Computed example of a mutant assay.
Amino acid sequence: MRTLKVLLLLFSLATALFTAPVFAQQNIGLQSIELKVGIYRIQAELADSPKAREIGLMNRTSMASNSGMLFIFEQKAGHCFWMNNTKIPLSIAFLADDGKIVNIEEMQADTTNNHCPKVAVRYALEMNKQWFSDRVLVPGTVIQGLPKIR
């Protein structure tokens, strides 16, 4: 019985050691910017590299109310998103170059359904689920403060 307890303890410690870096590395080195939409301010982490876009908001268990993640792509395309290993439900707004919301999708946590823009875009903004609808922000609304793409 004692051997079993020791093994369980070792397993728990090993699990903690191997999963902790995943949580810790997610926002290390990510810049953030302030975006504006009407009276609202958004503190958005920038996912502007292939690695940052790949990790996105995976494995996080919460996000502050007016915080989000802005995905920036070099090329306009039909960049689709899914929620594999993403623990919190999110809303995503696909944005035109001028900041206009093209379309908004609600995304369930930990699913592999594709969520795609209706037209080719370079920007996508993920916020907590229903953030946009709770503030009556709809397609055509302009998000200000998008960084210029080089």
Rank of each mutant, 00 (worst) to 15 (best):
E54L: 13
G38N: 11
V138L: 13
K76Y: 01
Y123W: 07
F94A: 04
M58P: 00
N103C: 11
I88E: 03
I72Q: 10
M127R: 05
G140N: 08
F71K: 06
A93G: 04
R41M: 09
F23H: 11
N128K: 12
E106W: 02
F18V: 12
Q43A: 12
L35Y: 08
S62E: 15
E34K: 12
N84F: 10
K51D: 09
E54F: 10
K5V: 09
T15V: 14
I42R: 04
I72L: 11
M127F: 05
L9G: 15
I42Q: 01
P117L: 07
R150K: 14
T61Q: 12
N114Q: 14
A20T: 14
A93C: 04
W131H: 04
E54T: 07
I149M: 02
E54A: 14
G29C: 08
V138S: 11
P147L: 04
R53Q: 11
N85S: 09
G29H: 06
C80F: 02
N113M: 11
V6L: 15
I33N: 07
R150A: 10
V121W: 03
F73G: 01
R53D: 04
N84I: 07
E34P: 00
L8P: 00
K51W: 11
K51C: 00
T15S: 13
V136Y: 09
M83V: 07
A44L: 07
F94K: 03
L9S: 13
R122E: 03
Q26R: 15
K100V: 00
P117N: 07
N103Q: 10
A16N: 08
N103E: 10
F94D: 01
S62H: 12
G56A: 05
M69R: 06
P117D: 04
D97C: 05
Q144V: 01
V119Q: 15
E34T: 15
N85T: 06
Q25R: 14
T112N: 11
Q130S: 15
L17H: 04
P89N: 09
V37M: 10
L9W: 13
W82E: 08
L4Y: 12
E105D: 11
V6M: 08
E74Q: 14
H115L: 05
I42Y: 06
T141N: 11
